[in-house]
């Protein structure tokens, strides 16, 4: 464990807590894409299949349970909780996210580190996570007024993988034979997808204006 990875995990945890806070306290999921949340459920479900077979540390297992539990409960809230579901803008959240899964599974079957079920599923979850934010970013461009909590949620979600990139650089230089091109490239693509969001988020923070993405 290094500080970059810990910072990444804490940022990721913060993003999930911000979203749960928004949904649970003000009972609103306005501006939040259910499609992105559903993709994240699949990302965690396929990423943590080995939660019962491979033990790394208490911390690792605990965080896996937190990410699994929170992502499932966010989808449950947005689908089945009456008050929250009412605030979900279904007409705007129309990204065909199931179509995102197909290329990811095909790519995972083609490019992976080992051709085993666990490894292909793990690689699939990496590719899927890289594009999981797309429905949310598309919804953001359609939603005129983005509330602060949603903006903070996306900012933290994008930031966590940025810290992971620093962690991979650190581990590359400190651990011999630590090379994981698949993880690195999909992590880089994932972070680059947030580039324009980060730019407009920074502008809104600098000019102290509401965050607005150009349509």
């Amino acid at each position: 464990m290094n500080i970059f990875r810990l910072a990444g995990d804490m940022t990721h945890l913060a993003s999930v807590l911000v979203l749960l806070l928004k949904i649970h306290t003000i009972k609103s999921c306005a501006g939040v894409s259910l499609k992105t949340q559903e993709l994240y459920v699949i990302v965690f479900a396929t990423r943590y299949l080995d939660i019962f077979t491979s033990f790394v540390s208490i911390y690792n297992s605990l965080m896996k349970l937190i990410f699994l539990g929170s992502s499932f409960s966010i989808v449950w809230y947005m689908r089945y909780h009456k008050a929250v579901h009412r605030t979900y803008d279904r007409e705007q959240d129309t990204f065909r996210h199931w179509f995102l899964m197909l290329p990811c599974i095909l790519l995972a079957l083609l490019i992976h580190e080992k051709f085993t079920f666990f490894e292909v599923m793990w690689t699939f979850s990496l590719y899927l996570e890289a594009v999981a934010i797309l429905p949310q970013l598309v919804l953001l461009q359609r939603t005129r007024n983005i509330d602060n909590l949603t903006g903070q949620y996306i900012f933290l979600l994008g930031g966590y993988r940025g810290f992971y990139i620093l962690n991979w650089i650190y581990r590359y230089f400190t651990e011999p034979h630590y090379v994981h091109w698949i993880t690195w490239i999909s992590g880089l693509v994932q972070t680059l997808l947030y580039a324009d969001f980060f730019y407009y988020y920074f502008l809104s923070w600098k000019n102290n204006k509401k965050l607005q993405l150009p349509a």
Partner: peptide
């Protein structure tokens, strides 16, 4: 309990 090399990250 087997630990996959490289899968020690979340």
């Amino acid at each position: 309990l087997v630990t996959e090399p490289g899968h020690d990250e979340l």
